[in-house]
Amino acid sequence: WILPVLRVLAPMKRLRGTAFDPFGYMAERRLERRVIADYEGIAGRVLTGLRHDNEAEALAILSLFDEIRGFGPVKEAAVRTIMAKISDRLKVYETPQAKQQAPADAA
């Protein structure tokens, strides 16, 4: 009984990502699109400040997005948690090197 239904649905995959996508307006899909846009923006910021000595930190920041998993409220909570971690790490990453070393020199 499912095959006829799938045959009807199959041509509708062309609607994905368009204004006519019936599932594109769901909160979870909007969240996923926002996370993609956030990733692209943060990747740009990370690449702008990329140096040989901070490659590992840049990779660590961008890899945090891989931890966003789940569905519904689980995914929403993961996004909030991971975005907070990313924000904290970006502050340190984007702080000029001289400022990061200043407190250690004063001690």
Rank of each mutant, 00 (worst) to 15 (best):
P103W: 00
F65H: 01
R30F: 03
E67K: 13
V8L: 08
A10M: 09
K85V: 02
T48G: 09
A102N: 04
K91M: 13
F20N: 09
K91S: 12
F20E: 04
R51H: 14
S63A: 08
E67P: 00
R16I: 14
R14C: 06
Q100F: 12
E40H: 07
A84F: 08
A98R: 02
P103Q: 05
L3R: 13
L90A: 07
A78C: 03
A60P: 00
A106W: 10
V46S: 00
Y93S: 05
A84M: 06
A78S: 11
V74F: 02
M26N: 07
A60D: 09
G70E: 11
K91A: 15
T48A: 06
R69V: 05
G49E: 05
P103F: 01
I82M: 06
L90V: 01
T48N: 05
A37N: 09
Y39F: 15
I36C: 02
A107M: 13
D38K: 03
S63W: 11
E40Q: 10
R7Q: 15
A102L: 15
S87I: 00
G72R: 12
F20V: 02
L6R: 01
A19W: 05
L50H: 08
S63V: 04
L50G: 03
R30Y: 03
L3P: 05
I82R: 03
Q101C: 04
L50Q: 05
H52N: 14
R89C: 02
D21W: 02
M83K: 03
Q97A: 14
V92G: 07
N54S: 06
A107E: 12
G17N: 07
R80D: 15
T18D: 11
R51G: 10
K75F: 04
F20S: 08
A58I: 13
D53T: 15
W1F: 08
L59K: 10
A104E: 13
K91C: 10
L15Y: 08
L90C: 07
D66L: 05
Y39A: 02
G72E: 11
